[in-house]
Design a protein around this nucleic acid. Structure first.
Length: 490
RNA sequence: GGCGCCAUCGUCUAGAGGCCUAGGACGCCGCCCUUUCAAGGCGGAGAUCGCGGGUUCGAAUCCCGCUGGCGCUACCA
């Protein structure tokens, strides 16, 4: 039987890195085993449904490279892959439970249920359905009230009053639950939609899912699920409860900890491969020393047996470091292409589009080894693509020329003349000339270079100076030296 | 309150009785390299393996208890 896993998010918002990590594990497992990965939308809660989130889910998987073999937009042999389009399947299952006596119709109002719960809490008793509709008399009375008020019924699973059920979790090992504390739970809502407890089981069975991976916040629901599997005569798939991803304070990862959606990471300039690598290592490891691991290696080595049980804190600094590693490891041509696209998107509108790809190709290797985020690109090299530099007098002069601006002007003009007279406009020639000038003026090389750097780039931090000047070209470089000198005289 | 899950450096983790005077990585601190910024190299600090009992010649590793953190406790997933 081929391994089939699925990612079954409910379309209620933008994909969260926590959910995505579970999706990643599911994808890795399917790919490792040469099986299939399925996308299914669990949209049974009409009150929380956010239509746009469907595109977000699909786009986030696409961006991360987690391709699926079957899903709402690509179809497949078990279509439809959207729960709201499969209501008949759940109705059939619920009817079977009803006819078998494993479930019953419950007509209790939500007001009664709320009041019941409040009372139970007040008495410090475990909250739970009291079973009113479980008895013919109770049910008759409740139905009469409901029909008088025009309310419908739900289908409730009849949980045994005693005994226990257990699951051999692929990550946690054997989990056993005492049924005495489990109340009768709803499997079909009054609007005809199923609850998660019924829907996922029916769908996984229909779709031949062999391995279910989900967050460990689902563990408390396991006994209910085991009961449903049993009543429906379904052999449970392998079930694995994955550890959760926490924020730095140990609480659930949320917006106040920083970015939580994969799109935020994409838009900040993280690389999908870096995020995949990082996420894979929260809760899973290859060995005692591997931290940079390719997608292919991940697929080759992934195993549920190496997934840990304990929750992991999202270490944003490590992700940042890792992204830098991935940027540096990109083939230079590829980085240049990515950089050009990024600059096209992010450079100020005043810069002509599309950006000069040849220029990008020249500067890209120099910035590639200095940035950790693609979003640092514009700051690092915008000076190459615009000529409207604004000089800060303080930055231009620095500490060295602070009290002698006239000297700085003279130095700038000499630099202009020296490199203007250069025969070869090469990095080597420019460097030799500037070093010669520094020596002639008995200036520390760094002091001269800083001044020239700000003049040419407008910043104190830039890619290496000589290469930068070469890339800028003779004409533009000379003009900037002039501009900077003028700015100091103004 | 009830039920449950988890527990190794600040963080991600390695560790499945002796290989551990607990390894790697991020971060942090030095030094080196250096035209800025990075990157890189070298070195360092950092965990009495939550606590207490057992079992054993020997425990981070097995058992029990405790504590702490977290989760669930909806006609949400």
């Amino acid at each position: 039987m081929p391994t089939r896993t699925r990612y079954a998010p409910s379309p209620t918002g933008i994909p969260h890195v926590g959910n995505i990590r579970t999706a990643l594990f599911s994808w890795l497992l399917a790919r490792h085993d040469g099986g299939q990965f399925v996308l299914r939308l669990e949209d049974t809660d009409r009150t929380r449904f956010v239509p746009e989130s469907v595109d977000g889910i699909i786009e986030s998987l696409r961006w991360l490279g987690l391709d699926y073999d079957e899903g709402p937009d690509v179809g497949g042999p078990h279509a439809p892959y959207v729960q709201s389009q499969r209501l008949g399947r759940y109705r059939t299952a619920a009817d079977r439970l009803l006819s078998q006596g494993d479930a019953y119709e419950c007509w209790c109002s939500s007001q009664r249920l709320d009041a019941l719960r409040a009372e139970q809490q007040r008495l410090k008793r475990p909250p739970g359905y009291d079973g009113r509709c479980r008895t013919p008399e109770g049910q008759r009375a409740a139905r009469a009230e409901a029909q008088a008020e025009g309310r419908g019924s739900v289908v409730r699973f009849k949980t045994p009053d005693s005994g226990s059920v257990s699951l051999d979790d692929a990550i946690h090992g054997r989990l056993t639950f005492d049924l005495t504390t489990i109340d009768d739970f709803v499997v079909l809502k009054s609007d005809g939609y199923p609850t998660y407890h019924l829907a996922y089981i029916v769908d996984d069975e229909d779709m031949r899912i062999t391995h279910v991976l989900r967050g460990d916040e689902w563990i408390p629901s396991v006994p209910r699920h085991m009961l449903v599997y049993g009543a429906l005569g379904i052999e449970p798939p392998v079930i694995a409860h994955t550890p959760r991803i926490l924020g730095p304070d140990g609480a659930k990862l949320s917006k106040r900890h920083g970015a939580t959606s994969v799109f935020e990471y994409r838009d900040e300039g993280y690389l999908p491969d870096a995020l995949v690598n990082f996420l894979a290592l929260i809760g899973w490891s290859l060995d005692d020393k591997t931290d940079i691991i390719s997608r292919e290696q991940l697929v080759e080595h992934f195993s549920l047996s190496r997934v840990v049980k304990s929750p992991g804190v999202f270490n944003a600094e490590k992700l940042l470091w890792m992204n830098g590693v991935y940027i540096r490891e990109m083939p230079p041509e590829r980085f240049a292409a990515v950089a050009a696209d990024w600059l096209d998107d992010r450079l100020p509108p005043s810069v002509a589009r599309p950006v000069d790809r040849a220029l990008v190709a020249k500067i890209a290797p120099l910035v590639q080894e200095r940035i950790k985020l693609l979003s640092e690109l514009p700051d690092y090299c915008d000076f190459l693509f615009r000529d409207d530099l604004v000089y800060s007098r303080d930055e231009l002069l620095g500490k060295v020329f602070r009290d002698r601006p006239a000297d700085a002007v003279a130095v700038l003009s000499e630099t202009r003349n020296r490199i203007g007279a250069l025969g070869d406009w090469t990095t080597e020639a420019i460097e030799a000339e500037l070093r010669g000038q520094a020596e002639a003026l008995s200036l520390k090389p760094g002091d001269l270079f800083s001044l020239v750097r700000v003049a040419v780039t407008g910043k104190r931090v830039s890619p290496p100076l000589f290469e930068t000047i070469e890339a800028l070209g003779r004409e533009r470089s000379l003009a900037r030296l002039d501009d900077a000198a003028r700015a100091l005289q103004a």
